[in-house]
């Protein structure tokens, strides 16, 4: 019965409009199949063997398109600033209900595992799948686990803020160093040695920048999570 009622004019017109749009999209895309052309990625793969690290995605994210990553970090920074601005009132209100025994003991067990895994993913991001973003989010999720299991715990704001500032400033400073030393912003001035390919210390600034990115992402995500959590009970 209620299906009839919910089939309002709005639903019908929305359905028709989006169906028409999508059918034409599918039609166009199926008729023009992408060919195997030489794409920019192939050029970057070739370039990677002389200037990059083992994980090509890391090289692309941090170095070849490092400027995008800087912008992306700025987006995260502004977003966490905005979340803090919106939800900053009554920061003293905390979660009222104590968590249960299961969660408390499990968090004691899981927290070290998650944080070690996060740090591993962050540090080995240039050799194996993973990297700063993934590692940072893992660390932030470990912090979230601690926060929901222990209502009295509060990650000190000053520490998060200091980490975040340090990471952000040093990323831009590394970029400016490149500008100063060789007139190219974000230049890899530590000149990667090809003989070190695949080692932990290889790739010049790439692993350093990715660890910085990890710290930045972890602190921003921790900040967002803490802000959303502290407000969740009184809404």
């Amino acid at each position: 019965m209620s299906i009839k009622r919910s089939l309002s004019t709005l639903t019908l017109s929305g359905f028709t409009l989006s169906a028409l749009l999508i059918l034409s999209f599918i039609n166009i895309l199926l008729q023009n199949v992408a060919t195997n052309i030489e794409r920019a990625g192939d050029g970057l793969l070739k370039l990677n063997s002389s200037e990059g690290v083992a994980n090509v995605v890391t090289t692309v994210v941090v170095y070849f398109r490092g400027f995008d990553t800087l912008g992306e970090i700025a987006v995260l920074f502004i977003a966490s600033l905005g979340v803090g601005l919106m939800l900053e009132r009554n920061t003293e209100c905390t979660i009222k209900v104590q968590s249960n025994f299961m969660l408390q003991s499990a968090s004691k067990l899981l927290f070290p595992i998650i944080i070690i895994f996060g740090l591993y993913v962050m540090i080995y991001g240039h050799l194996s799948p993973g990297g700063g973003f993934q590692g940072g989010v893992l660390v932030a999720s470990a912090v979230l686990l601690l926060l929901i299991s222990n209502k009295d715990l509060e990650v000190p704001h000053a520490v998060i803020s200091a980490l975040e500032t340090l990471a952000g400033v040093s990323y831009v400073l590394i970029g400016l160093m490149g500008l100063l030393l060789s007139d190219v912003f974000l230049f890899n001035f530590l000149s990667p040695n090809i003989a070190d390919f695949g080692l932990l210390l290889s790739g010049g600034i790439i692993p350093i920048v990715y660890i910085i990115v990890g710290i930045k992402v972890g602190s921003e995500m921790g900040f967002i999570v803490q802000n959303l959590l502290k407000r969740s009970d009184d809404v």
Binding site: N100, L103, A106, I148
Partner: peptide
Amino acid sequence: IFIFMTNPLSSSVIARAAHT
């Protein structure tokens, strides 16, 4: 093992939060 540890845990936390 990790999934067996975390999946029931999260469901119990959700149930508790809903009950509260």
